[in-house]
Structures are given as structure tokens and as C-alpha cells.
Amino acid sequence: MERTFILLKPDCVQRRLMGRIITRFEEKGLNVIAAKMLVITPELAKQHYAEHVQKGWYPTLEGFITGGPVLAAVLEGLEAIKVVRDMLGATNGLNAAPGTIRGDYSSSRQMNLVHGSDGPEAAAREIALYFKPEELCAYEPTITKWMRAGDEK
């Protein structure tokens, strides 16, 4: 099982899309093993987006991500990082394929609803930024045997 981090951004929360988006991940077979709502502080934003802090457009990003509540979550499942990235679609909603989350709900590069970790190292770093180890509640749903073969672990 692989874990990944997602962040339902302020535009997602304000547009009342959280339930629809979490439902899509669950319907795909991913388990939500941690979730919390919070308002990201400028300090946390700088840690989360450390690779972008020196870029000229960073102040706009920080203003957006700290501008309202977000939902941070950890998803677990087979190839969770790739599955989530594929489900999100292209970063710019205008370029995202129909059927993806951004393709269905976004028409912006920045206001693209959901952040998803781009690799195992990023997932581990981002999960640790938002959650303590004891806040992760891994479980195996009883329906698992009907969603994938027993040797797909």
C-alpha cells in the first residue's frame, strides 16, 4: 500500500466540492486514513511550497492558499500517488481532460481545487507537515476482496 497527501484548496472548500471530490477517491478504492480542516498559515505555506518561495509569483500563491479553510488528507491504496495525480488531471484546469477532477471542475492554473503529492518523497514530507504519526488511521475495508485480487498488495 502506498500513501499520498492531498490538499483540498480554498477554492474547493468555498465551492462546496469537498464531498464530491473525496467521493471520487473513495469510489476509486483509495482509503482516507487521515483528514483535517485548517487554515494554512504563511509559515506553513512557505514549508509546503518551499521550492516556489523565491519565485516572483509566490506571494500570489501564498495569498490564495492562506485565504480560507482547506482540507488536508492522507489517502492510501495501490499506486496511490499515480492514481491521484491521474485523477486530478493537468495542473491547468483549461488543459485537463474531461473526466478528471480539474477537467470537470476547474478553469484555472492556480485555482485548481486539489494539490496531490508528486512522488514518494514529497508525499512523506507533506504528510509529516500536516499530520502526526498517531493521526493516521490505516484500515482495510471489508469490501477490499471485491475490489482487487488478493496478490495485489
Rank of each mutant, 00 (worst) to 15 (best):
Leu71Thr: 09
Leu94Lys: 15
Thr91Tyr: 04
Leu7Met: 13
Val83His: 11
Ala35Asn: 06
Pro120Tyr: 08
Leu113Arg: 07
Val70Gln: 02
Asp104Ser: 10
Pro98Ala: 15
Leu94Pro: 00
Thr4Glu: 03
Lys46Gln: 14
Phe131Ser: 03
Ala149Leu: 08
Ala124Pro: 08
Gly77Cys: 06
Val13Phe: 05
Ala72His: 11
Gly29Lys: 13
Ser106Tyr: 06
Ile33Trp: 00
Ala80Phe: 09
Val70Ser: 01
Glu51Leu: 04
Phe5Glu: 06
Asp151Ser: 10
Ala123Cys: 05
Arg85Leu: 06
Pro69Asn: 12
Ile81Glu: 01
Glu79Asn: 15
Pro133Glu: 10
Thr142Asn: 03
Thr100Asp: 06
Leu78Met: 05
Leu17Gly: 04
Ile6Leu: 08
Val70Leu: 02
Thr142Gly: 11
Thr60Gln: 15
Gly150His: 09
Gly19Arg: 14
Ala124Asp: 11
Lys82Asn: 13
Val114Thr: 01
Lys132His: 07
Ser106Phe: 00
Ala128Pro: 10
Ser106Thr: 03
Cys137Ala: 13
Ala72Pro: 11
Ile143Ser: 14
Leu136Trp: 08
Phe25Val: 03
Gly93Phe: 06
Ile33Cys: 10
Glu76Lys: 14
Thr144Arg: 15
Ala149Asp: 07
Asp118Cys: 06
Ile127Thr: 08
Ala97Asp: 12
Ile22Cys: 06
Gln110Asn: 02
Gly56Glu: 12
Ile6Tyr: 04
Gly99Thr: 01
Leu94Asn: 09
Leu75Ala: 04
Leu61Cys: 05
Thr60Gly: 14
Ala96Glu: 07
Asn92Ala: 13
Trp146His: 12
Pro59Leu: 08
Trp146Val: 00
Met1Gln: 14
Val70Gly: 02
Asn31Met: 03
Pro98Phe: 00
Gly119His: 13
Gly19His: 11
Asn95Ala: 05
Asp118Ile: 09
Ala72Gln: 12
Ser117Ala: 05
Asn92Gln: 08
Trp146Asn: 10
